[in-house]
Nucleic acid binder design. Structure first.
Length: 584
RNA sequence: GGUCCCGUAGCUCAACUGGAUAGAGCAAUUGACUUCUAAUCAAUAGGUUGCAGGUUCGAGUCCUGCCGGGAUCGCCA
């Protein structure tokens, strides 16, 4: 149980008893927070309840605080409380409250930090969704890691989550892909294809696909009309690209539950058709012309009547085209249908992870989500900023056109999945990252991945040493749970426990905000606190974990170390980063 | 020009959705290794949170207007 949530609810109960009139406005009892104060000298927990309630109660904060504090002082585990500043109430908890956290962590293990109850509703996280025209490149790595970690975080928080990949297999780029593959097919049959013509994909990754086509069709495609051949091989080529993509993602330990093909939305009986009919009935589709963009009118602008969706009714800046001049649907039309499809599959919460170049797309996606669900579905678009790849300080060039881009697979092969994942998550998703090969592969403090994993390995090494030095001492998990935790009363120990005890609220807030980076920063903090405590044992030998003369204390300390190790492991588990027992 | 994101210590970034004296790391200076792994730790120093207003008990956070950087801008996906 999250201690901060526990005291929040106790204070809310106390307030209801003190001020019965609050029953009419129950919301205000959820608006105040109980949190660790920024300044440790203010105590263990702080609440702004009196200030938040001043207005609804038409009273002043100090007066409310004075009534409330009497109740708080009676709470179990509260050692003292005082009013500070404009009306904060600061509490100090007894050591046993913190010591019990150790017991709870060791008792619940990998389950520690998970909320008791599952939130209602199904959540869909859509991420990566790169065009199936080649391997995944670096630009998509961040979205892949972010989406995967977010899904993992939410699953840890007991959300009913589906990880989804939207395959853009219906656009014109698929024809180009198929033509490029047919070229490689002719190459596989021994023809000299020379330079890859402009406009086709030159990448060597299509060579195996060409061979596969040669194996399957022999020379049957050679005399065929190109359009016909393209039709024949399209889905085979897309499948083979998806295999490539899945293999790259697997190297990063990124896996999706569900692959959704855009193609299936098209056609007479497809979702686009049905969705547009439905929108028409709702009066959200009309024939009309759009205003040119404000300020800058494109030179070739001409007013043209087209089929439009009333996106502006749902917060978008303008209405959006649904049908191209050649009669086919726009990408956005498919997207609307896709969001309706998700809604009909039961996803009231839809998270879409996109690259920075799609930031202009957010409003229309949110509008589509609202429109196709009568406002019941919520679409949250998470934008991942660019990753600047550096090597020796120089920007590492990537170019898909030249066919020499660094793929995700190349990157993972070079630095490892743990490094890629942690570095991508050790930053807010909407801030750009400099990814420097030199830094992220160094085994020093500069490298946060290493720093955190080292803390976990150190904790494990304590157990190896205890086993070696005290072979007769039972240090099994059972024994740790029977350890006397009351001896863990040194301020240095309590400080470390306090950091560990914040894990639950970090998980809760990261889940709510859809921000897995908070877990990454937290685990770094916890590692730091552990390293600090470790070094204290050098200055003050009585704080060392393994004490040959005092086995009781050793056992208690091991309980502490195991708890910290467990929280490190649980945090890393959420991020999909390994927690090694020792470093090589 | 419209829209969105960003602007915080010399550098790279946090700041728990409005809380108290804005925090870490790097770089700089000083100190701790016959080590429970110094692959680490401690201390010092570093700030008008781009600028100017506004909202309120209280603003890095919300609102308005500027300045600077990036992304995007009717049928690409």
């Amino acid at each position: 149980m999250d201690l901060f949530a526990l005291y929040q609810s106790r204070i809310a109960d106390a307030l209801s008893a003190l001020f019965p009139q609050l029953a009419e406005t129950p919301d205000v009892l959820r608006r105040f927070v109980v949190e660790p104060p920024r300044d440790a000298s203010h105590g263990d927990m702080s609440t702004n309840a009196a200030m938040v309630l001043a207005k609804p109660l038409k009273s002043n904060p100090r007066a409310i605080a004075e009534q409330l504090i009497e109740k708080i002082k009676e709470f179990e585990g509260v050692e003292s409380a005082e009013i500070a500043g404009p009306g904060f109430i600061n509490m100090r908890l007894s050591a046993s409250v913190w010591q019990n956290v150790i017991a709870e962590i060791n008792a619940t293990g990998t389950e520690y930090g998970r909320p008791k109850d599952a939130p209602a509703g199904k959540v869909n996280v859509e991420y990566v969704s790169t065009n199936p025209t080649g391997p995944v490149h670096i630009g998509h790595a961040r979205g892949a890691v972010f989406g995967d970690a977010l899904a993992s975080l939410m699953a840890f928080s007991r959300c009913d989550i589906t990880k989804e990949y939207y395959i853009n297999d219906a656009g014109g780029q698929i024809d180009v892909l198929a033509k490029s593959a047919l070229l490689r097919y002719r190459e596989a049959l021994g023809q000299n294809i020379g330079e890859i013509p402009k406009g086709l994909y030159p990448g060597k990754y299509l060579i195996p696909t060409g061979k596969k086509l040669a194996d399957q069709f022999g020379d049957a495609l050679l005399n065929m009309d190109e359009a016909e051949a393209v039709d024949k091989v399209k889905s085979i080529v897309v499948d083979s690209m998806m295999e490539l993509i899945k293999a790259d993602l697997a190297k990063l330990n990124v896996h999706h539950d569900y692959f959704f093909s855009e193609k299936q939305l098209h056609g007479e009986d497809g979702d686009i058709h049905k969705t547009l009919d439905w929108l028409r009935e709702e009066g959200l589709v009309y024939q009309g012309t759009l205003e040119p963009p404000k300020g800058k009118t494109p030179e070739d602008w001409e007013d043209r009547e087209q089929t439009l969706f009333k996106a502006s009714d749902f917060g978008d800046d303008t209405d959006r085209a649904l049908v191209k001049s050649d009669g086919s649907y726009t990408y956005f039309a498919a997207d609307i249908a896709y969001h309706r499809n998700k809604f009909l599959r039961g996803f009231n919460e839809q998270i879409v992870v996109l690259g920075a170049d799609h930031s202009g797309y957010i409003k229309r996606l949110k509008a589509a989500g609202k429109a196709v669900s009568d406002g019941k579905a919520n679409v949250d678009v998470k934008i991942c900023q660019l990753v600047n790849l550096l090597r020796n300080g120089e920007p590492a060039k990537m170019s898909k056109r030249a066919g020499t881009f660094v793929t995700l697979g190349d990157l993972v092969d070079e630095v490892g999945a743990d490094v890629v994942r942690f570095i991508m998550l050790f930053r807010r998703n909407d801030a750009p990252i400099d990814f420097d090969f030199e830094v992220v592969t160094a085994q020093t403090r500069d490298n946060p991945v290493f720093y955190v994993q080292y803390a976990h390995a150190r904790a494990c090494s304590v157990f190896r040493n205890a086993k070696r030095d005290l072979p007769d001492l039972d240090i099994s998990l059972d024994a740790l749970q029977k350890a006397d935790l009351s001896v863990l009363s040194d301020p240095a120990e309590i400080e470390l426990i306090k950091i560990a005890a914040q894990f639950e609220r970090v998980v809760a807030s990261a889940t709510e905000a859809h921000e897995p980076h908070r877990v990454a920063f937290y685990v770094h903090d916890l590692a730091s606190a552990f390293h600090t405590f470790w070094t204290k044992g050098k200055e003050r030998p009585e704080l060392r974990f393994v004490n040959l003369d005092e086995q009781t204390i050793t056992l208690s300390r091991l309980a502490l170390v195991n708890a910290v190790r467990q929280v490190l492991a649980n945090s890393l588990g959420i991020l999909g980063v390994s927690a090694p027992d020792e470093l090589s």
